[in-house]
Amino acid sequence: MKKLLLIVSGLLLTSCAVKQPGVVLPGEDPAKTIAPDRGTSSAVITLLDKARDATRAGDYQRAEVLLERTVRIEPRNASLWHYMAKLRLHQGRYDEAIGLSSKSNNLARGNSKLMADNWRIIAHARYQSGDRQGAEQAQDRARQLQAQ
């Protein structure tokens, strides 16, 4: 798990605490994480704030509940599904992380930064589940998207 965290942090982030809603995992640089879509409602932002606090406090179950509430309010907001995926990855629930990342990609509509991050989550989840080849493919997709 620690190793995974290091990889995650290496790819997505580094340190310091800017106040940005969404899921920021321990060790992540909030400035480098995906920001909520511009059209995100204040109701959802409020919940994301709480989810971030819960994640920081290590209360992942609570963060999970809060994120599910955001998705019920804005089901087509791709970044919300991304946050859920990230949390699942952190919880070690790899299959669920892959599913949620794909869902986020499906709604991402050309947001290549978001899609690249989703593919990174898929890469890690696949790697952790023992699918090295799949992980590499996902990693390649992430790189391509990042280059766009």
């Binding site: 179950q61 999970e64 599910e68 998705v71 299959d95 669920e96 892959i98 599913g99 794909s102 869902k103």
Partner: peptide, 16 residues
């Protein structure tokens, strides 16, 4: 106190 959650799960079953 929470005993069990039944979370949202999605799996891409067929390409969109």
């Amino acid at each position: 106190e929470p005993l069990r959650r039944y979370p949202i799960k999605v799996q891409q079953a067929i390409d969109s």
